[in-house]
Computed example of a mutant assay.
Amino acid sequence: MSGKRSWKLVLAAVFGCFSVWLSGPTGEPGEFAHAADTLNVEGLPKDLKAYRAQIDQMLKKVDALIEKLKTQPNATAIVLDLQQTRDDILRELPKIETAPGDAKWTAQEMRNSVDAKLKLLKEQYEKAVALAG
Rank of each mutant, 00 (worst) to 15 (best):
K95T: 09
Q108P: 03
L118T: 00
Y51T: 01
D81L: 09
A35H: 12
P100D: 11
A75Y: 02
Q124T: 02
A53N: 08
A103T: 12
F18K: 00
G16H: 00
V79Q: 08
W21A: 14
T38E: 08
A116Q: 13
A64N: 15
S113H: 15
T38F: 04
V79K: 09
E126C: 00
P94S: 05
M1Y: 12
K49T: 11
V129I: 15
A13Q: 05
L22E: 10
K60T: 15
L44M: 09
P100L: 13
G30Q: 07
Y125A: 04
A12Q: 01
I78A: 01
E42D: 13
V41P: 02
Q54H: 06
V114P: 04
A130K: 15
A75K: 06
A12P: 01
L82A: 05
L90E: 14
E109M: 13
R111F: 03
K117C: 00
G30S: 03
S19I: 13
E97G: 01
K104E: 13
P73Y: 08
Y125N: 04
R86H: 13
T106S: 15
W105Y: 09
G27D: 07
L121E: 10
P73H: 03
H34I: 11
A128L: 08
K8S: 05
V14L: 14
T71A: 13
A77K: 13
T71F: 09
K127G: 02
G43F: 03
P94M: 08
L48F: 01
D56P: 00
P25K: 02
Y125L: 05
S6F: 10
K119L: 07
G43Q: 10
Q57Y: 10
E123Q: 12
L118G: 02
P94W: 12
T98N: 08
A12R: 01
P29V: 10
A35Y: 10
L93W: 01
L82I: 08
D63N: 14
D63T: 15
R111V: 02
L48M: 08
E97S: 07
A128R: 07
T26W: 09
D47H: 02
T38W: 03
V79H: 07
G133E: 13
L80A: 15
S23K: 08
L93D: 02
L22C: 09
I66C: 01
I78S: 02
C17E: 03
T106Q: 05
P45F: 04
L82M: 06
G30L: 12
E97I: 11
I78F: 04
A132N: 15
W21K: 03
A99G: 00
G24Y: 06
